[in-house]
Design a protein around this nucleic acid. Structure first.
Lengths: 168, 168
DNA sequence: GTCCATGCAAACCTTTTGCACTATA
DNA sequence: TATAGTGCAAAAGGTTTGCATGGAC
């Protein structure tokens, strides 16, 4: 990349640079460019989103480098990887926000609403205790229709058996 | 398939047959064979697991038919599809058990422990109300280490930044 | 100057699809 | 017998990898 995306890396990008140096990895312009995109958005970005932003900003970065940099960002714990059953992953940074939150996902338009629930943390602790399990992370996702799609009259197909549940 | 897996289909397989007939789909030996495997296991089966069982039982079924049949089973609501971030899907039938339950997943050995939490249902309702969201389904998964792996001394790599969370 | 990252393309892996053939109803 | 399913192989789509080149330190 001959033209850096920004002249001065933002504070979050510098944090990533610190992670790289701490681990003996070179700080490259490509890594800073990908980090800049991810940290400057509050959205849940797909690799395609990230590539589009990069190319829009004039950067020329291979897809493999984007994937490799996202791996590093996830390993650094500065970025979280999500899978909302769309067939690809999404990435969300963990800075300037509550580190732990859950998601409401619209099945129609893929809009993501974040919410926080202290009770989930409590459930996680209690259930893990009950099973002598050591929890590392969790995911609570609620799939359905957002208010916009509901107001637009969207309905989801209802299929299944006439009497779906026959618990024996 | 010249040799049916079982002489008489089990009750659950007959339920699937009913679904097929109700929708005008032919009831084939392949569909019954796949359903038989899925309904006779309480586990969370991968497509590979299912194929192995089929071939072990002497059935010769193409991979495509397994996928197509699983689609039908999911559409019938008799079977649930899961994605535990392993790079492939798993399938679990919903009969003879509480229809709604959550999962503890071991990051080391992929063992799945099921648990039920009424509170999650309540959280789902309340949060959805708050956001005028219409919930259709949810997923609560807790990832970590199961008791067996803990006792075997398994440790997960700790990476990340020295001071990982610097919320601004 | 050394070592590692990058870019490109090929490989990978799960899942889907096209098509000739076969089984269901 | 008409219609839909099956099996095989090829395609698809996201992600990973190999390798020669180029950049970081």
């Amino acid at each position: 990349m001959s033209q850096p995306t920004t002249m001065a890396p933002s504070p979050f990008v510098r944090l990533f640079g610190r992670y790289l140096r701490e681990h003996g990895f070179p700080v490259t312009q490509q890594r800073e460019a990908v980090a800049e995109i991810v940290f400057s958005s509050a959205a849940h970005l797909s690799v395609e989103d990230i590539e589009r932003s990069l190319h829009g900003a004039g950067a020329r970065i291979g897809k493999a480098t984007v994937y490799r940099t996202l791996d590093l960002l996830v390993k650094s714990k500065l970025v979280e990887e999500h899978d909302f059953d769309e067939g690809f992953k999404r990435y969300e940074h963990r800075l300037s926000r509550r580190p732990e939150h859950e998601h409401l996902i619209c099945l129609e338009c893929a809009t993501v609403i974040e919410f926080k629930s202290h009770e989930v943390q409590i459930i996680k602790e209690r259930i893990s205790d009950d099973h002598q399990f050591r929890p590392v992370r969790h995911r609570l996702e609620i799939y359905g229709l957002c208010v916009t799609c509901l107001e637009a009259g969207v309905e989801l197909p209802q299929d299944g058996l006439t009497c779906p549940i026959e618990t024996v």
